[in-house]
Design a protein around this nucleic acid. Structure first.
Lengths: 253, 253
DNA sequence: ATGAATTTGTCCGTATGTATA
DNA sequence: CTATACATACGGACAAATTCA
C-alpha cells in the first residue's frame, strides 16, 4: 500500500504527482488567485511525504508562474496576470513624442512608469562589445518599466563613452533617452535590428522583475545604426513572459 | 574558517557560490564544451558540502542551458548551440512552394526536417476552443522540426473536425499541411495573427525538445482566418530559446 | 518598538531507484 | 553483470523573513 510500489508500469515521481494535483486544483478553481496554499509542512503531512518533495513541486509551479512564494509568509496562487499586448513590427521610435509619458525605453505605453535603476559611466559588456564593434568603455543605463507596482521589463543600454561623454550624469529618471541622443547629439536613425529569444531570468533580473530566478523571460536585444552607418546604441531587454505578449498581425487584403 | 560564518555582511548561499564558480570556469574556458564535470559526489567533497547543495547549483545551470545532465553518465558542459536566425515579419506562407523541403510548418528552412509526432482526430483544447470560437472536436496534428538530431521546435495544429473530416488520416509525415488545406479544401488565407511569449517547457515538450523540464521556450501561437472571415486553424509552437532567434530588421531608407 | 510564532530558505546525512558505460 | 552517476526521497536542523500579539 505504499506510494512507492514498483513495477506497476512507470508511475511518475511523487513531486510530479503533487505538482499535477495542485495545478489541477488551481485550474478547476478549487484554489483561487490570491489564496494561500497550505504550508509546505502541512502539505508534506497531507501527502505523507517529506517537505523537500513538496518544495520541489512548489518550485516548479513557481517558475511556471502558477504560484508565488513569499518567505516568512506563505505560498499563494498567482493572480491571473494582466497581459500587455505589444504590436511588433513597429519602428523603434523617439518615445518623447508620445505625450506625457516621456521615457527612456521603446514600447512604454500609457499608465506605465519607467524608473532609473543604474547609470554607470564605465562598463564593458561582452555582447555590447561584439554588437557595437568597439571595445568600450561604455556608458550603461538600466531602467525598469512597470505598471503600478508590477514590473514588466528591465532595459539596459550601452553607448560608447568617448562619443557621449558625461551621458550617465545627464540622464534623469524620467528623461527620454532617444530624445536626448537626437537633440543633444544630433543623432538620426538609419536602420536597426532587434532579436528575440527566450532565456531564464538570472538572479539580478529576477529580483528587478519580482519573479523567482529561473523564470522564463524574453530577451530582446538589438542595435541602432546612425545615418553614417555607425552603430551607436546596443540595448538589451529582459521581458516578463507572463506579462508581455508580442503580437504580429498579417493581412493579405 | 567555516564556509558558514555569519554576520560577515550577507554571504550568498553556498549553492549560488558553486553555481557562480562553475559558470566562471565555463566562461573562462577552463571547462570546455563537451567536457564532463566532476561527479556530483566529487564536487560535494571538493566543496565540503552536501550533494544536495551541488545538485541545486547544477540544476540552475542546466535550466539556463550551460550544462547538460545525463543520468547514469554525468554532467557535461553544453556545446555552444547553433542559433538559427528567423526573420520575423513575414507572411505565414504555403511552404510547399519552397522546393524540396515540403513541410507542415512555417519557417522550415533548408537542412531542417519535420517529423509527425501525433495525429488525433478528436481533441479538445481550451486555447483552441477560445481562439477558433467553436467547441470542437478538433483534429490535432503534432510535429517536431529539427536540424539533424537537434530539435528546434514542436508544432501543434487544431482544425475543426467537422469541417475537415478524416484529415488526421490524410496527413503524412512529410506532407505540406497548408498545401493540403489549399488544394483539397480550397482554403485561402485572408488574415492571421501570431503572438509570442516566453514560458517554461512542460514535461512533454521538454522531452520532444531534448531539454530539461523548466527550460525557457518561446511560445508562438496564432490563428489563420480564411477569405470568408472564419477562423480555420489554431496553431501553437514551442521553440527552443537556445536554438532559435527571431530577427527584426528596421530600415528608414 | 519588541519579541514570539509562523513560514519559507538553506544545508546536512542517509538510503534506494534507475539509466548508462 | 557490475560499477558508476544521476534521480528521488526520507528525516532533522537552523537561518531568515514575515506576521502579529
Amino acid at each position: 500500500m505504499s506510494r512507492q510500489q514498483q513495477g506497476s508500469g512507470r508511475r511518475p515521481p511523487v513531486y510530479r504527482q503533487v505538482e499535477s494535483e495542485v495545478l489541477r486544483r488551481i485550474r478547476e478553481g478549487e484554489l483561487e488567485p490570491g489564496q494561500r496554499l497550505p504550508t509546505e509542512s502541512d502539505l508534506a503531512v497531507e501527502w505523507g511525504v517529506n517537505r523537500l518533495t513538496i518544495r520541489q513541486a512548489i518550485g516548479e509551479l513557481a517558475r511556471a508562474g502558477h504560484v508565488t512564494v513569499r518567505q516568512g509568509s506563505g505560498t499563494y496562487v498567482s493572480d491571473r496576470p494582466v497581459v500587455v499586448d505589444v504590436d511588433l513590427p513597429r519602428m523603434p521610435s523617439t518615445d518623447a513624442d508620445a505625450g506625457s509619458t516621456a521615457s527612456i525605453a521603446e514600447f512604454v505605453q500609457e499608465g506605465q512608469t519607467e524608473t532609473l535603476v543604474d547609470a554607470v559611466s564605465d562598463d564593458r559588456d561582452h555582447d555590447a562589445v561584439e554588437a557595437l564593434g568597439v571595445d568600450g568603455p561604455f556608458v550603461r543605463i538600466d531602467t525598469v518599466v512597470a505598471t503600478g507596482d508590477q514590473p514588466l521589463f528591465v532595459c539596459s543600454y550601452w553607448l560608447e563613452a568617448v562619443r557621449f561623454p558625461g551621458f550617465a550624469d545627464r540622464v534623469g529618471s524620467r528623461v527620454a533617452l532617444y530624445a536626448l541622443l537626437r537633440d543633444d547629439h544630433g543623432l538620426r536613425l538609419q536602420h536597426a535590428w532587434r532579436s528575440l529569444t527566450a532565456i531564464v531570468a538570472n538572479r539580478d533580473d529576477a529580483a528587478l522583475l519580482s519573479v523567482p530566478a529561473g523564470s522564463p523571460v524574453m530577451l530582446r536585444d538589438g542595435v541602432n545604426v546612425d545615418e553614417t552607418g555607425r552603430p551607436t546604441v546596443y540595448l538589451r531587454r529582459r521581458i516578463r513572459g507572463d506579462r508581455i505578449r508580442f503580437m504580429l498581425r498579417y493581412d493579405t487584403s
